[in-house]
Simulated assay, not measured.
Amino acid sequence: MYTGFKHLHSTLAYILLAALVFSILYTLFSYLNKKPFTEGNRKVALIGLISAHLQLVVGLVLYFISPLGLSNASGAAMKDSASRLYFLEHPLMMIIGIALITVGYSRAKRLKEDKKRYMSILIFYTLGLVLILSRIPWQVWP
Results as ranks from 00 to 15, higher is better:
residue 109 K to R: 07
residue 82 A to L: 10
residue 34 K to Q: 12
residue 123 I to Q: 11
residue 113 E to L: 04
residue 53 H to T: 01
residue 81 S to M: 10
residue 32 L to M: 10
residue 35 K to V: 01
residue 130 V to A: 15
residue 122 L to F: 14
residue 53 H to Q: 03
residue 89 E to M: 00
residue 64 F to V: 10
residue 49 L to P: 02
residue 47 I to R: 00
residue 30 S to A: 15
residue 43 K to R: 08
residue 22 F to Q: 01
residue 113 E to A: 12
residue 131 L to G: 00
residue 7 H to N: 07
residue 94 M to P: 08
residue 107 R to C: 05
residue 39 E to F: 11
residue 128 G to H: 03
residue 44 V to H: 04
residue 63 Y to E: 12
residue 26 Y to T: 00
residue 112 K to D: 15
residue 128 G to T: 12
residue 85 L to S: 14
residue 80 D to K: 05
residue 111 L to G: 08
residue 127 L to Q: 11
residue 136 I to V: 15
residue 121 I to G: 08
residue 86 Y to S: 10
residue 33 N to G: 06
residue 93 M to P: 01
residue 105 Y to E: 04
residue 17 L to G: 06
residue 33 N to F: 07
residue 7 H to V: 05
residue 97 G to C: 02
residue 6 K to R: 09
residue 58 V to I: 05
residue 87 F to C: 13
residue 68 L to V: 12
residue 48 G to V: 07
residue 82 A to H: 09
residue 41 N to E: 11
residue 65 I to F: 05
residue 50 I to K: 01
residue 26 Y to P: 05
residue 17 L to W: 03
residue 75 G to V: 10
residue 16 L to T: 10
residue 25 L to T: 13
residue 101 I to A: 05
residue 11 T to I: 15
residue 44 V to Y: 13
residue 20 L to A: 02
residue 142 P to E: 08
residue 21 V to A: 15
residue 53 H to P: 01
residue 59 G to P: 05
residue 44 V to T: 00
residue 129 L to S: 04
residue 1 M to A: 12
residue 51 S to G: 05
residue 81 S to L: 06
residue 2 Y to Q: 02
residue 18 A to D: 05
residue 82 A to S: 12
residue 102 T to C: 01
residue 11 T to Y: 12
residue 52 A to T: 00
residue 100 L to C: 15
residue 100 L to F: 15
residue 65 I to K: 02
residue 55 Q to P: 06
residue 7 H to T: 03
residue 109 K to A: 11
residue 39 E to S: 15
residue 113 E to T: 06
residue 90 H to F: 02
